[in-house]
Amino acid sequence: MSDQSWPLWEVFIRTRNGLAHRHVGSVHAVDATMALHAARDTYTRRGEGLSVWVVPSASITASDPADKDMMFEPTASKIYRHPTFYEIPDEVGHM
């Protein structure tokens, strides 16, 4: 219908000072400037943000959900990476 489809951009918003930008959704736009304007209009109509990032969706490399086990399972057995693995006598108090 539209003769040419506009590229897709992922939108990230920093909601408050000190917080990380967080993914909120996506917009279509011909270029980065217009993507930023569209993101502002679409996702921050009620003061939801202090800063907006737009990233071409095609630039994101994602892990394959099918590789989930290969990617993340190895950490499950490494319990020594957590503080609770180490025993500290009660008398020592909070550490």
Partner: peptide, 18 residues
């Protein structure tokens, strides 16, 4: 949709020019 066709075309033309 028909009336707004020029906006879509203009946006594409602008992006190409830039």
């Amino acid at each position: 949709h028909a009336d707004n066709a020029w906006v879509r075309e203009a946006a594409n033309a602008y992006a190409r020019k830039r």
